[in-house]
Write a protein that binds this DNA or RNA. Structure first.
Lengths: 136, 136
DNA sequence: CTATATTCCTACCAATCAAGTAGGTTGATT
DNA sequence: AATCAACCTACTTGATTGGTAGGAATATAG
């Protein structure tokens, strides 16, 4: 099973693309879709999520598109992934809207899953979009 | 999205159960299912996988059931999970049978996913079933 | 040899999610 | 007014999850 689906991966690639091609003006989805080899129609589903969460700025109409609203250093991979994936819980028990587990108190494995979740959060929180950009 | 589904989690709990109730003789699935609150019919799907991979020994007929074939220290969480889950790749690109990605050489995110995969493997390889057993 | 306990096997199923496609509407610029 | 571009709703296809159902094979105890 996979932790991160195309939604999260594409979102990340889009943000990196926006950062690498930042010129101050809006970049149309079409351009990003072409460059990244992602279907425009599929992107149309992913971008609004990012915009509604104030991660990027968008503009409709001619000359419109998207652009970042902060420097790349301020975008943490963790934030982008959790927004698009919902939660990065390793197991259902640790999901945001998980129903209380009866066996929680006696569960031998729960502490391990929690520790792993911590490690995961730390890992992706320590990587920014700036770190992922092509240097030079 | 979840990394580990019930199959992997249940398998792990079963192995721990077998370790904690080890008396040298075979323990029937029914007993494990009751104790762990897992459907017998669902367990019937999971156990054969473990047996075919020599993780546990099984016996049919009266007095039959399953038992471990090594000490709990020798069972690494990583092994049990990968057997039952297939692969613990964080993204599709890193799956065992992933088709070669065109963008691999220029992908900004691939190194990150690879590093995360390493961390994951290290984490679960350093935990054994003995570590998860109830002490005392 | 038979009753019973137990695994083993094949098939089925409902719900959810992934990964898109399709088509039209609204909004902004030139 | 033409055009570009985001926005919105709905649909589709395939795979996966998390089971269920029923019976066949196997082994032991009496």
């Amino acid at each position: 099973m996979k932790l991160v689906s195309t939604r999260g991966r594409y979102a990340l690639r889009v943000i990196i693309d926006l950062a690498e091609h930042d010129s101050g003006s809006y970049i149309p989805m079409k351009e990003i879709a072409m460059r990244q080899g992602i279907s425009l129609k599929y992107l149309e589903q992913i971008m609004p999520v990012l915009m509604k969460n104030k991660v990027i700025d968008g503009a409709s109409g001619k000359g419109g598109g998207y652009k970042l609203n902060r420097p790349p250093e301020d975008y943490k991979v963790w934030d982008i992934l959790t927004l698009t994936e919902g939660s990065l819980a390793p197991v259902a028990c640790l999901d945001c809207d998980a129903e209380k587990c009866e066996r929680e108190s006696e569960c031998r494995t729960l502490p391990m899953w929690k520790k792993y979740q911590e490690i995961t959060e730390d890992f992706f929180n320590n990587i920014s979009v700036a770190d992922l950009m092509k240097k030079g």
